[in-house]
Amino acid sequence: MTRISDVITKIEEILMIILMAAMVIIVTFSVAFRYFFNSPITWAGEVSIFLLIWVTFLGGSWGLKYNSQASITFLMDKVTGNQKKILMIIQLLSMILFLGVILFFTYKWIFLPSVHIQKSSSLLLPMWIPYSAVPIGLSFAAIHLIARLSPASIKREGAE
């Protein structure tokens, strides 16, 4: 699991670079096109929002792997040793449970026929493409969290 999680992290990082660069280029060009060529790129807004959503779920998943999201560390800073490990296991299990429930409904949703007929308003791109950010990002996140449950990982994080 740890290996899978690491491979996924690599994929996430490559996607982050590509998508983020694309976002900057698209928004900058859309300003330029409107001003210098007087012909707005009508799909620019739509596509850059899709990129933002993808980036959010990939980055969110990455943040769960490295535990870098904002949290209240009060209690975690107070406890040590086994108590800390138990607390970490509780945290991870409850997040995995939560993601499990969400993922069940997310996959149910993404495969709905009514999702497959939806198209974006200006590019007429099938909406399942941007929508997939949710199931893929959250699946990645769940894998990272499961990997963090491994004894080696618990030991390493507990020592920090």
Partner: peptide
């Protein structure tokens, strides 16, 4: 540059993932 892009995404996601 690639490193900067990654860290931008990660910092963004701490906010936007919270938003979602």
């Amino acid at each position: 540059f690639p490193k900067i892009l990654i860290s931008t995404v990660i910092n963004t996601a701490t906010v936007t993932f919270l938003i979602t």
